[in-house]
Amino acid sequence: MKIVVCLKRVLDTQERVEIAPDGKRLVSTGLDYVMNTHDECAVEEAIRIKEAKGGTVTVLSLGPSGATETIREAIAMGADEGILLELEGDEEAWGPKSTASALAQALKGLEFDLVFFGLESGDGSHHQVGLAVAEALGLPAVDGVKKIDFQDGKILVRRGIELGEEVYELQPPAVLTLVDGMNRPRHPSLRGIMLAKRKEIKTVKAAPREEPLRLIQLRKPPERAGGEILGEGKGAVPKLLEKLREAGLV
């Protein structure tokens, strides 16, 4: 099975979420970039399939030159090859349309059975790129996959919906978008990290197209106000119960 995983690096917002003065981006100074969480599961799943069935895993990422580090992380986990579509200029100019057309273009030059995406990116959260690539390539797609089973030469995939799960039988080539939580991504081994360091990452330049969705400004949702510290340890329990009783909860 030849699998291409499309992935993105995103700002690690665990330390801080601060909107820049232009209102259009987050302040990134001092923050790291990490692999988008859904994409990390997609990489893990692809590697597990390779380990079980043989084949190759190629990772493809659109991003600035720094995104090679994220590609190397995937290689350290067990992917074979990495390709960077290097965007020039402002990353914010790249919306889902530009991203999908650049990725689709690159995929046309690659051999694959399956293309994996993470469900959506943790930053823009558009949930469009995987679907748009499937459309551009004229391939079947299942969106929001949480399980992939190989049974008697068939590929059965499950995706979560509001009622439960839908099961599809898939004929490659196909596109799948995968969800965080379907597996627990491994930590790269030391050997993997060494290997990834030496790996050559193929780089191709990419330019954006016009985006029909324009960002005016970002804003923070109102935060909850803090309340009352009732006390320390189990001694505070009666006081809490009194409060809950007042609220009609016990």
């Binding site: 979420v17 930053d123 959260s125 400004q217 923070k220």
Partner: peptide, 12 residues
């Protein structure tokens, strides 16, 4: 956006 930790005003 950002999985719900921020909102974006946008125009189509």
């Amino acid at each position: 956006v950002w999985g719900g930790i921020l909102f974006a005003e946008v125009e189509l």
